[in-house]
Write a protein that binds this DNA or RNA. Structure first.
Lengths: 184, 184
DNA sequence: TTAAACATACCGCGCGGTCGGTTTGTTAAC
DNA sequence: GTTAACAAACCGACCGCGCGGTATGTTTAA
């Protein structure tokens, strides 16, 4: 009847659950713990069920990585939309996105790095990185801004080490300083 | 005759070769390519021979990681020894070590991150990171210096992505700027 | 009735690891 | 100097397990 066919049950929801569970596993127990069986178990599905949604494991990993990238991109765009100033707007958005990702999705944060060891995933990752750098160059070309972006990446890297807070700079102060370095 | 017994052949050399080959494999083909068989083949030894030097794979990975950490520490100490100024000396050494590692051992550089996904290796890594941070706090406590260190980490992360140079800042200029930020 | 959305059972392969044997080098008795 | 004795260094064949993936059966919604 309807041209756009309606799905029965909720396959999209199961798909989402599988992606989230895979990301969670990669973060909490390392990439080696991300087996098809483990992901299926965590999602409350059998292995056969998982392979109904993803043709193979590689496609699942791809989906996880794409999901992470999309979230980060969305965070950047959301900030960019509310930034009136031109100079350093992308860098500021990048810094803010990095910090907000750490706050609102700490468990998912390190998934990307965990996936970096996978050659296939690494290709996709590089493609996205390249696109991001090109965009960064188009708007924020100043060397000072590039350094700020490097610092944000460093913070991101430090976050997923889960180091004790007393050994690190105050978080709000750190963010404020970085944003300040990307302003004016 | 001699109290300290002399070794026959050169087992230490084989051990070194195994570690280097494992690091090379992890860098060039990802951690998943670091199988006992592959490492043994690359080192010109059989699998049985490898297990004569390392009780299990975990100990081999541990040795690789320790080797990388030692190299980086040595680079830091070497620079520290020739730095007369007090303020920011550790940060400057950290920056220089990061850049020199990328230049002189580019193939080995990303090994550590590849190993970060391994839970066991990650523990050792965290221990070293903690010690490094404590030392950093003891000498270079200023927030400006901590940000420079974050930036160096970001550069390190960007290096192992092997992004095209035209999308990145000039390397010498970048290093000079970072060192400048850690001076005075 | 039909097809999507699963479950169940199974397979082949490659991995880490083991074990018995062989070579190589050192020591010491004679 | 010769040689027996011993241990380190290493090889090669093998094993069990867990993985990704498949083939087929079963349920559920339209």
């Amino acid at each position: 009847m309807n041209e756009g066919y309606e799905r029965k049950k909720q396959p999209e929801l199961v798909r989402r659950t599988l992606i989230d569970c895979a990301a969670r596993l990669a973060t909490e127990r390392g990439l080696q713990a991300v087996t098809v069986q483990a992901v299926a178990d965590a999602a409350g599905v059998t292995k056969g069920g998982l392979f109904h949604h993803f043709p193979n494991k590689e496609k699942l990993i791809d989906a996880v990585l794409k999901d992470q990238i999309d979230k980060f991109d969305a965070a950047i765009e959301a900030t960019l939309a509310h930034d009136g100033e031109r100079y350093g707007c992308f860098t500021r958005a990048y810094v803010i996105a990095t910090f907000s990702m750490a706050e609102f999705a700490p468990a998912l944060e390190s998934t990307c790095v965990a996936l970096l060891t996978d050659p296939v995933a690494r290709t996709h990752w590089s493609d996205w990185l390249r696109a991001r750098l090109q965009r960064h160059h188009a708007t924020d070309a100043a060397p000072e801004l590039e350094i700020v972006r490097y610092a944000a990446d460093g913070v991101w890297l430090a976050d997923l080490q889960q180091l004790p807070a007393d050994l690190r700079m105050d978080r709000d102060q750190l963010r404020t300083r970085l944003i300040g370095l990307a302003t004016e």
